[in-house]
Design a protein around this nucleic acid. Structure first.
Lengths: 288, 288
DNA sequence: TAAAAATACTCCATAGGTATTTTAT
DNA sequence: ATAAAATACCTATGGAGTATTTTTA
């Protein structure tokens, strides 16, 4: 294996074309430099310089090595910085999942400012429901995820940063005569499948149906946009986070309901996550 | 400066995640390997492994270094082969000039077979007259050149490989009544400027005009193609190498003239040329 | 408690230094 | 004649070995 030091020494001679001055530049004496270059030539089985006591010139092979070694040494010199950047979370990879609701909240802004702060971190985004995220964490496919859950019932086994608690509001089809609260509660419900987030699902049904009353499910859907579309088609009503009111849709109006359940949005990650994750968490905690 | 050996040792541990087995793979004992990795970590200022007596795992920085070091070592390992290839003339750069006539001779075939034989040699071609080539050699812009000259009068100060001697033939405008040889000799001459190749120019004029007779210059031109075009326009006659007869052109016929001067085509190069040049010379000498 | 990493020390290969000789202009 | 590379020989740093201890699953 050719080492880097001999290449560095060779480059000094190749540049100055003078063993004595090259040795000076390398802060060493001339004889060991001569030896090192000769040893390098022996290792390569190739003459690198045409020497006489009056002139030193590069052979074609020497010219080729000069180009190759310069590149190699530049890469080697950059390596520690890159590794340190990864260790400090300023470079690397961050695979981030998020539930669709946060896409309507602060996520776009946080991502934008994070990319500015850490441009060397490559971000891989993936919209996924809570259940899918949990599987992705288990499979090691994602590094962090924004999830939504009932307050105080965050997924277990994760580090967590809460980014806000908000009430659910009722999304209902627009109509000439606004229905009463009771009518709203009696309407069919548009909701995500229970397995996506059981505790949140149960909390909504409990509240919507009152104390154990039968609740009619109008349609199940996963994407927030789809749920709102179904409401606009008067298939039923839906409980959505208050921040969703930013999503205006013809034929849909929102109504805050007294005593409505609250939901919490959290960023979760494994405790053994990479420094890039820690950077991102810290970034979100400052901007949320 | 990070050296390559510690990186290699690190990679072994990173792959096997076991200091003892990695040491075995490296044909060394475990303690110095542990030391080397710790020293590397100290140099980088970064922890590369999470160690316990039961498990060794890569940190994110370690994962990053694994990728970087793998690439760096692969390049370092390839370096000797590349340098040796350049030294043997199997790789490198070859800047080749040629006078336009050889473009109609063997050059295309030689180039094609040379590219097959030495695909790693990057060929830079340049059509140039003898005088331009001599300046390019002096300026270090070309490595070898095909030139045409009177036999025994090759450019001085070069290594040389003759690739053939041939007579000049007369290119003349086609006509119903073929002119006599004497008429041909009396016709205006289409020829290159004298400074392009003085000795060849003088030889042509001496022969064409006979013993010091006045010779009329119809037009000067440099490119062979242009000279033939001028002949076809009946501006005059031209002496061209016999091999040029391969270039058929409406309105132009060729006539071998007894006692016509001969020209020699040679490949010339500096005696300190690169191995790639030597390869090329050797290739041409076998195929010419 | 047992497997594996860390520590303590010893040794030697080799990078580097000094003094000198050889060589080519 | 002289500048510069090569040679000869010496020194010492640090990479690698052996023996042992510490750690944790």
């Amino acid at each position: 294996m050719i080492e880097l030091r001999p290449l560095q020494q060779f480059l000094a001679v190749a540049e100055l074309l003078h063993f004595g001055r090259a040795a000076q530049a390398l802060h060493m004496s001339q004889p060991p430099l001569t030896q090192a270059v000769r040893k390098l030539e022996a290792q390569l089985g190739v003459q690198l310089f045409e020497r006489s006591s009056r002139s030193v010139r590069l052979t074609p092979a020497g010219t080729a090595l000069q180009a190759l070694a310069t590149r190699l040494l530049a890469e080697a010199a950059a390596l520690p910085q890159e590794v340190r950047a990864v260790a400090r979370g300023l470079a690397g990879r961050l695979r981030l999942a998020f539930v669709s609701t946060v896409g309507f909240g602060g996520l776009p802004l946080w991502l934008r400012s994070f990319r500015e702060a850490c441009p060397q971190v490559s971000l891989a985004l993936r919209e996924a429901t809570l259940d899918v995220q949990l599987r992705d964490f288990a499979a090691g496919n994602i590094d962090a995820g924004f999830v939504i859950h009932t307050p105080g019932d965050a997924p277990a086994g994760f580090e967590r940063l809460s980014v806000g608690i908000e009430p659910l509001v009722l999304a209902l089809p627009s109509s000439d005569r606004p229905p009463t609260d009771a009518q709203c509660r009696a309407a069919p419900l548009v909701i995500f499948p229970r397995e996506v987030a059981p505790s949140l699902y149960d909390a909504i049904l409990t509240h919507h149906g009152g104390a154990g009353q039968g609740v009619q499910i109008g349609q199940e859907a996963i994407q927030m946009q789809t749920i709102i579309n179904l409401v606009s088609a008067a298939i039923g009503v839906a409980w959505v986070p208050a921040s969703l009111q930013g999503l205006q849709r013809a034929g849909v109006s929102y109504r805050a309901m007294p005593g409505a359940p609250e939901v919490e949005t959290s960023l979760i990650w494994r405790s053994d996550a990479s420094p890039a994750v820690a950077r991102f968490v810290e970034h979100v905690s400052r901007h949320a």
